[in-house]
Simulated assay, not measured.
Amino acid sequence: MPRTVNPTHARQWAELALQGLTVAEIRKKHRDRTGKVVDSRTIERALKKTKAEIAERAASAAELQHAIREHSKHLLAGIDPLTKAIKSTTTGRLNPLPLYAVTVNKVAIGSVTAELAGSSWRVRIPSEESIELRLLKEHLPSDKMWKQLDKFSDSVAHWIAMRTRFAAQIQIELAAGPGAPESVDEPFEMAGLSRIETAAANDRIKSDHSVDEVLRDLVIDPDQGGIWLGSTKLTSLSFDDVDDLRTMISAKVRGVSVSDVGRDILTSWTALTRASSGLLEELAMLRMVTYLPGTCKSCKRFRL
């Protein structure tokens, strides 16, 4: 049965072997240093064992590195649904439409939703609270992306508030316009009014004369009466001159657009687009990372 080799001797032999010495040379070095003769087969077995141990440690380290990379990859994949949700808001289109959203407490922009809590909107982004992103935040607690995400949520809430405020003001101004009898609370149909309001918002943001284009479709229905916007009914009230109605609506809309309410919708839209583009850029850069520094609960639990 082979004798147990002194670990100190085994390490010394391994160091000499790494320097390129042969077994015979190692054997001579050992004899010169200790005054004792050692069998060359003992040295060979010790070197073989040391080599196996080194290989095992290297394999374990490689497996650990692979596990860490896979862990990082899995957490970073949680960014994808978040990115998709942010991109779904780029149109800024509210569901329901702003005029209808004035009287509800929950709206959506793309897949992002917001619920009215008191006088402010509380925004919820799909996957924002996913386990992947929670653990990712433990790895990167100070990353710029988290501030950008908060900024985006605030911008969405402000956009919804300003967008519904603009819609409500358009409705108020047009309801008080000439030709609308005081006995009628809502002289205009919501569907037709919503077309005008949407065009007014687009016009304020893009300056594309959307309102003028919509108002060109104003016609009097000679059979059923009332005013129509193409195939959408605007009002059942009778107006002698559709041009006068067109002029009145255009003037009222323009008045709201140049007011503080109109300016607020422009600034809130600008803030939202900047916040979303900034966040998407941060998410794209973070998605390119291949290794996450720090640790999270999962790392600690599985000793990564």
Rank of each mutant, 00 (worst) to 15 (best):
V112L: 07
D39Y: 00
E15G: 07
R33L: 10
D80K: 15
A52H: 15
A117M: 11
T267L: 06
M162A: 08
G192M: 07
K29H: 07
L82C: 05
K73M: 15
M1K: 10
I227Y: 03
L280H: 04
T91I: 10
A284R: 09
D80Q: 14
D260L: 10
L234C: 09
T270K: 10
K106W: 06
I196H: 00
L76V: 11
P181T: 06
H74V: 15
K29M: 01
L76R: 09
R57G: 10
G179V: 04
L82N: 07
D39C: 00
S277F: 14
L174Y: 01
S120F: 13
A167I: 05
V5L: 07
T89G: 05
R303Q: 08
R263E: 13
P141K: 12
A52S: 15
P96I: 00
L283A: 13
P81Y: 09
I220K: 13
I249T: 05
D241N: 15
H66K: 15
V184Y: 02
P7E: 09
I196K: 00
P181C: 04
N6I: 07
P7L: 12
D208C: 13
A161I: 03
A199C: 05
A17E: 14
I196S: 00
T232G: 08
H66F: 15
T103S: 04
A67H: 11
A271H: 05
L18Y: 13
E56D: 06
T164Q: 03
R31G: 04
T270G: 01
K300S: 04
K137T: 05
S153M: 13
A251V: 03
R195I: 13
D143K: 02
K206V: 14
T270W: 03
K252N: 09
A52F: 15
P126I: 04
D185K: 05
T113L: 04
G255H: 10
I79K: 09
R27E: 14
T89C: 11
A10F: 10
Q65A: 15
P178N: 02
P126K: 02
L64Y: 07
P293C: 11
L149N: 03
I109Q: 01
T34V: 05
L18W: 12
T273F: 04
I125E: 04
R274G: 15
V214M: 03
I43F: 02
T270M: 08
I196W: 01
C296A: 12
K29P: 00
T270I: 12
